[in-house]
Structure formats: structure tokens, C-alpha cells
Design a protein around this nucleic acid. Structure first.
Length: 498
RNA sequence: GCGCCUUUAGCUCAGUCGGUAGAGCAGUAGACUUUUAAUCUAUUGGUCCCGGGUUCGAGUCCCGGAGGGCGCACCA
């Protein structure tokens, strides 16, 4: 499995192996170490000794830290190095006259990239930097592969994705982004849990992947000798739980869609879906707005403005903007509700806009919306009152049956959430599934086969319920100001080899 | 799927008009007891993404292919 190395790289690895052998020859085998008793992090020490004055020493306390050597500055009989752990960096300082000749030889075999444990006391150097004065140390893992340039880091985008571990070692901003992602998801859970929701897990392997329109990935279950599909949504199973009386449930889970890859699409991505019995779309909109505003506040440290793009920002001050789906299109280009809701009218608009023909009326509406309204949705905006023909799982508005109680939240031209009052009439649901069979027959192969057991579930009675889906990756992109979904997914899909 | 861009040392990057392959960092050897991209001296290191072609001669020009990035298309 070992790849062939270039001569230069092979020589670098060989040099590092020589240092490893040198350590071992003096009885210090880095890979024999199994535990190092760490009692402080870089951040702990930075906080605790922040008040230490210039050249002041705190010799009474010995600390043990562990981390990776990021730079090393030898000065003859002394050495400075920077050690990085999960919390930050700390400079360390070692002297030959204190460690002794033998141990100082070991220091010579420590290189950038090695993982070490060091014990010592804290002082502030002449130049004012907080530093750990080393009294003892251990090499905990030897890096045999050379790290990228200490100053420019790793820039090669392909290598950054394929060898994310190297990216994380040398690029602090990348590490910060993924720390932020974890914080965002944890805070999302905390917020949702505090409203009485239960986190659940539903199957990834399904006989019929439904709940959205997308081509599924196929798999095969040997034990059953049956083809199965990877889920494209968690919606139908979560609503089965609502029927079962769980009332408030959510799942943060991986979704798989066998479609294009670009800066906002990865074949596997993370979605939050949440359902609340006895809520309607308005309750959900309020909850959604509070959740997003909360996350913005957490990320910015209390502000409601997110930095965005080159020097720009987006305000998440509540309330967010609201606009009707049909009204919005009409405002921006004058096409009326009557034209839009008529299949021939919508087709005519497509032609006027110079867009290719759509296989279905619903598809045409989506295209018109994308071209006319979506480019204007930079500030967070709730687009409300979607047509029923593009909302097969949403409940009709009581006073306007062509529309449904649904909204989507947009910001930075990205769809962030999709929510509606759930259809709970089994007869209506059956009729819409039957209509989908017709759409599928017309050539829209992304419309899934109906899940008839879901209709049966509704026949047991689902309370009036509101549901929402939030694309977690895109939300993290927005909150961390990243332009590509690959910058917020640790291991984005890449072609094999390379 | 289509278009544009890109691929040179372990890393970051130069490479002019087609004429012997370059730098910094890293590495190696040496000097240096408060440096911080440490510094100073010396020095090793190349499948120029792959395969063809043109040419006396190709990193450079042409054709084909691969990986990657961006845009379009696709993606409720």
C-alpha cells in the first residue's frame, strides 16, 4: 500500500528515521509510550499566567503539557520550540546545562511535527512571551512524514481535502472552522432539547427512499437478498413517530443524494429535521427565527451581524423579512398568480426568460423562482405560501387551497430551511402520491416511488404537526463565512486515486 | 455532461522568445545560552501530472488522457 516516494521525500523520511533510531538507541522509544499524564493545556496556562510580568518566573509549580512541535529554534546550548495542543500554542525553552548531555542529544532528535510531552515551570521571556521552561520531556510519537512549510502551510486544495489531517495540523483557520462546526451543532441540539424535543435515529437503509425529490444511492442487503436505497430525507419516518405519539422529535443525520457535486452540494450531507405536533407553520417560523438568531449570536459572541464575503455583512436582527412566493415573483418581474399557477402560463414565462422547457409545471415554477427571486435573497428572508403543486407533503391553506402553509428561509442566496404544516389527511396524501406517479411517468425521475405504508400511518391519525428541514452544512457555511461546502465537511467526497 | 483555469523539489512558488531546471522553507554538516518565519556559513534533493506529436532541441508549442478548482447544466 505504501506509495512510491520521490527521492527528496524519501531522503526526508530517512533522516527522520535516523532520528527515531537515535532516540531508540538511548532507550527512548517514542512508540513505546502509551500514556503521558497531562495536567494543563496551553490555554489553561495562558489564562493562569496572563498577569506574569516580564522575565518573571513561576518556579513553584511544575506543569505537564502535551502536543505537537510546530516550530523549533535551536541556539546551540538552548532550544526554543512551539508546542500546539487542541487549545492553542505555547512556547517552550530547554537548556543543555539543565537537561544534561544525554537528554540534550534527545532534544536534537525532536523535529517539527513530533508529538511530545513536556514538564516545566512557566516564565515570561525577554521578548514578553509566556514560555514553559522544560525540566523533563518525552517523545510520544515521531512524525516520519515531513510537514508542509511552516509559514505558508498547505495550500494545495486537493491535498487539503484528501489529507485533511495534514490540513488540520498546519492550517489553524481550518481547525477553527471545524471547531466552530462542532460548537454550532452542539448549540443547535441544546436549543432544541431545551424546547422539549427528543433526538431520535431512523434508518439510513430503506426499501423506498422518500420524503424529497432526488435520485437515491442503491445498495444490496445480502442477508435479505434485496436491493435497498440510502435515505434522501428523514421526513417520513419522523412523521411516523409523530403518529406514534412522540409529539416532538428531531434527527440530525446524514442524507445521501446521488446528484451533482459543487460548492453547495456534497453527495452525503447533514440535515436537521424536526417535527412538532400541535404546532403550525407560524409556530415553526418563530422557532426557526429564534434558533438562527441564537446561533448567530453564539458564533459572533452576542452580535446579530455576520461577516459575509469580501468585507460585507448580513444582519440577522429579528424579525427577518417575509415575502409571499407568488407575490415575490410578481414584485420582481410582474408575472401574476394566474399566469404562474397555470401550466401553460408558467411554460410561457420560462420561454420569455430564455430558460429550457421543464418536464412538469412544478419544475417550471422552481426554475422561475430560482431565476427571478432567489438572487435577491441576501438578507435572511422567509418566503411563504408555496403553491401546492411543488409541496406534496404540506397542508393546504384553509382559505386558499392552491397554496400550502409552507415557508423557506433564505440567506446569502442559499436555502437554509424548508418548513410547513404537515399534511395529515390520508386521502389527500394518497391523491398526491398518485399525482406524483403521473409526474414520474412524464419524465421527472427524481420523484420517488410512493411510500404507501406512510399513507397507512396517516390513517391511524397524525395530529396537526409542523415540520422543518435545515441543511446543517450550508448553515455552517453561512455562520463561518465559507464559500464551499467542502470547507465545512471534514472529508468531502473526492474521486479515488489522484 | 459542457466551458475556462490549473498540475514544476517534501511544502510555497518562479521559470522570458523553444536552447544545460531555479528560489525560499524543510533536510544534512557546522557556529550560536532568551529565540519566535531565529540568525549566519556550506550543502543534498527533480518521473516539470501521464501518453503521443512537431522540432536539431519541448517544463515551454500541438493533440489526447488523468486529478483538482471555478462557472454553466443538474440539484423541491
Amino acid at each position: 500500500m505504501q506509495e512510491d516516494l520521490g527521492k527528496t521525500e524519501a531522503a526526508l523520511v530517512e533522516a527522520r528515521r535516523t532520528h527515531l533510531a537515535s532516540l531508540r538507541s538511548r532507550g527512548n522509544d517514542p512508540f513505546a509510550q502509551t500514556r503521558y499524564a497531562v495536567d494543563a493545556t496551553c490555554l489553561d496556562l495562558a489564562k493562569q499566567y496572563a498577569v506574569l510580568g516580564p522575565e518573571e518566573k513561576a518556579t513553584s509549580e511544575i506543569w505537564h503539557i502535551a502536543g505537537r512541535v510546530m516550530t523549533k529554534r535551536g541556539m546551540g546550548k538552548t532550544v526554543f520550540a512551539d508546542v500546539r495542543d487542541r487549545t492553542g500554542r505555547l512556547q517552550i525553552y530547554a537548556r543543555k546545562d539543565e537537561l544534561g548531555d544525554e537528554r540534550f542529544l534527545d532534544w536534537g532528535s525532536i523535529e517539527r511535527g513530533d508529538v511530545i510531552g513536556v514538564a516545566g515551570y512557566i516564565f515570561r521571556s525577554k521578548m514578553g512571551e509566556l514560555t514553559l521552561h522544560v525540566t523533563d520531556f518525552a517523545v510520544l510519537a515521531k512524525a516520519l512524514a515531513p510537514l508542509p512549510d511552516k509559514w505558508s502551510g498547505l495550500q494545495d486544495v486537493e491535498k487539503r481535502y484528501r489529507q485533511r489531517y495534514v490540513d488540520l495540523i498546519v492550517n489553524d483557520d481550518v481547525r477553527d472552522t471545524f471547531i466552530a462546526r462542532s460548537t454550532i451543532v452542539a448549540e443547535m441540539r441544546r436549543f432544541i432539547d431545551s424546547h422539549g424535543f427528543l433526538e431520535v435515529e431512523t434508518p439510513t437503509l430503506l426499501h423506498v427512499a422518500g420524503g424529497a425529490a432526488a435520485r437515491p444511492f442503491m445498495s444490496h442487503v445480502n442477508a435479505l437478498d434485496q436491493e435497498m436505497q440510502l435515505r434522501i430525507a428523514t421526513e417520513l419516518n419522523l412523521k411516523r413517530l409523530i403518529v406514534g405519539g412522540m409529539e416532538r422529535v428531531y434527527e440530525i443525520g446524514r442524507i445521501f443524494r446521488n446528484e451533482g457535486i459543487d460548492t453547495t452540494h456534497n453527495p452525503e450531507f447533514t440535515m436537521l429535521e424536526l417535527y412538532a405536533a400541535f404546532w403550525d407553520v407560524h409556530d415553526m417560523l418563530d422557532f426557526n427565527e429564534a434558533l438562527i438568531a441564537h446561533l448567530v449570536s453564539v458564533v459572533t459572541g452576542g452580535d446579530d451581524k455576520l461577516p459575509h464575503g469580501d468585507g460585507g455583512s448580513i444582519s440577522f436582527a429579528r424579525p427577518f423579512k417575509r415575502i409571499g412566493y407568488l407575490e415575490g415573483i410578481e414584485q420582481h418581474c410582474g408575472y401574476t398568480r394566474e399566469q404562474l399557477l397555470d401550466p401553460a402560463g408558467a411554460a410561457a414565462i420560462l420561454e420569455k426568460l430564455g430558460l429550457p422547457k421543464s418536464p412538469t409545471h412544478g419544475h417550471a415554477l422552481d426554475k422561475i423562482f430560482e431565476h427571478v427571486l432567489e438572487p435577491h435573497l441576501n438578507d435572511p428572508t422567509f418566503v411563504t405560501d408555496y403553491p401546492v403543486i411543488i409541496s406534496p407533503l404540506a397542508k393546504r391553506k384553509a382559505d386558499d387551497p392552491d397554496l400550502v402553509d409552507r415557508y423557506e428561509l433564505f440567506a446569502a442566496q442559499m436555502e437554509l430551511s424548508n418548513a410547513f404544516t404537515e399534511l395529515n389527511d390520508p386521502d389527500d396524501q394518497r391523491a398526491r402520491f398518485e399525482a406524483q406517479i403521473a409526474e414520474r411517468a412524464k419524465g421527472d425521475d427524481e420523484i420517488p416511488e410512493p411510500d404507501w405504508d406512510f399513507v397507512r400511518a396517516l390513517e391511524y391519525g397524525m395530529p396537526p404537526t409542523a415540520g422543518i428541514g435545515i441543511g446543517v452544512d450550508r448553515l455552517v457555511m453561512l455562520l463561518t463565512d465559507k464559500q464551499s461546502i467542502r470547507d465545512v465537511i471534514l472529508f468531502p467526497l473526492q474521486r479515488q486515486h489522484g
